[in-house]
Design a protein around this nucleic acid. Sequence first.
DNA 1: TGTATAATGACCGACGGTCGGTCTTTCGCG
DNA 2: CGCGAAAGACCGACCGTCGGTCATTATACA
Lengths: 232, 232
Amino acid sequence: MPRIVKSADDRRNEILDGAQALFFERGYERTTVNDVIARVGISKGGFYHHFTAKEDLLEGITARLAQDAVARVRDILDDPGLSALERLNGFMARSRSMKLADAPKFRAAFDVVFRPENLLLYHRINAASIAVMRPVLTRIIAQGKAEGAFTVPDPEAAAEILLHLNASTHDAVARTIDAMGTAGEDAAIAALDQRFQFQGIAMDRILGLPDGSLTIVEPGFTRAVMTARQAG
Amino acid sequence: MPRIVKSADDRRNEILDGAQALFFERGYERTTVNDVIARVGISKGGFYHHFTAKEDLLEGITARLAQDAVARVRDILDDPGLSALERLNGFMARSRSMKLADAPKFRAAFDVVFRPENLLLYHRINAASIAVMRPVLTRIIAQGKAEGAFTVPDPEAAAEILLHLNASTHDAVARTIDAMGTAGEDAAIAALDQRFQFQGIAMDRILGLPDGSLTIVEPGFTRAVMTARQAG
DNA sequence: TGTATAATGACCGACGGTCGGTCTTTCGCG
DNA sequence: CGCGAAAGACCGACCGTCGGTCATTATACA
C-alpha cells in the first residue's frame, strides 16, 4: 500500500466523513473500525494515530454536526434588531429550511438513526446538539425575559428543557417511519404533524407565551421531509 | 460442576437479578456475560438458553423495573375518588416516598447510571419507564381534560412530553453528582432542587395549570436522596 | 544559499486478547 | 424415555496495540 501523507486536520476530517457516512448507513454498532479504514483508505495504525478509540468517532461526528448547525444560524443569533421571539422563530425557520434543502439526505439518515438498535447514536447526536445550542438558546431566553416577553425563572434551565423536548418525539417519528409505504402512511404523517404542533404549544407555554407564538412546523413540512427520497 | 435445575421463570429472574446488580455497579458495557454467569452461578449455555443475547438483559431488566414501579402506584391510579390533579400529585408523591425508602440504593445506582459511558443504560431505563407509564399518564390527563382542569389538545402526546421531561434533568443530575464531596456540594444540590421546581412549573404549564399546581419535589427531598449513603 | 542531518509525526499492518455467541453433550425430572 | 435445562469447550468478530517505516520540516554547517 502506498503511503499518502496529509495534514492531521485533513485526515481527521476525512476519517470523520467516512465514519459519518457509514454510521448513517448502517448505524454505529454495525460499523467496524475496519469498515471505516477501508472506506477512507487508511491503515489501522493510521486510524488510531488520530483517534484513541472507536467511541471517539461518535464524539467527533456529533460535535461537528452540531457546530455546523449552529454556524448556519449565526447571523440570526447575532442580528441586533430582533426581539427574542423573532429570533427564536427565525432560528427555527432557518433550521427547517436547512432540513428541506437536504431533505433526501436527512430522510435517509432518519431511516437508520431512528431504528431501535441505534438509540445510542440518536441520543449522542441529540446530546451534542444540546451542548452546542444550550448557551445560544439561553441567551435568547434571557433576552426575552429581559424584554418582559418570556416568563421563566431560569433561562438556562428553560433552554435545557426546550431542547430536550425534541427527544420526546423520537418514538412518534420512529412510528411514522415504520408506517411509511403502508396504508396508514398519510394518517401517520398527519399524526406526527399534530405532534409537532403540540410540541410548539408546549414550548410556548413553558416560556409563558400565548399558544401559537412559536412555529415548529409549517404546513406541509412534515410530509415534505418524510416523503423525501434519496437520489440515486 | 453439579447441575442445578430450576424452573425457567425462577432462573430467568435470578439471571436478571444478577445482571441488574452488576449493571448498577459497573454499567452495561463494562459487564460481560461471563461476569453475569459467574455471579449467578450458571454456565454459558444455561444463560443463552434463557436469553438470546446480552442485549436482552437490558430489555428484561428495564421492563421489570418499570413494571415494578407502576405496580407500586396501582392503587392511586385506580382510586375512583380522585380528581386528575390529585391523582397526578398522589402518583408523584408515592414515587418520591419509594425513592426515599430506598434512597441509598437509588443513590448508589445513580453514581453509575449517570456516568457518560452509561448513557445507553440511562436511556433504556427511561424508555422502558415511558413505555409503561405512557398509557397510565394518558388516562390521568384524559380525565383532567374531561374535568376541564387540564387544557391540552392530545392527552397521549402530553403524556409523552411530560414523561420525557425527566430526561432533561440528566445533565443537571450528573453535574450534581460530580459536585458531591466538593466545596460546591451545597450549591449544586440547591441548584438541582431549583431545576426540579422549574420542571414542575413546566409540567403545570404544559397541562394548562397554574404554576405550582404540581409538586415534583418537597423541601429537602433532593438533598435527602443525593446525600444518602449505601450501608455496608 | 545549498545540502546533509536530525527530529517530528503521519502511517503501516500483523498480532493479541477480549468477549459475545454457538454447538455438542450430558443430566435430571416427570 | 422424551424433553427441556444446563454444562463448558470452542469459535470468530472486532477493538486496540506495538514495533517499526516513510515523508516532511527544521536546523546546522559549509
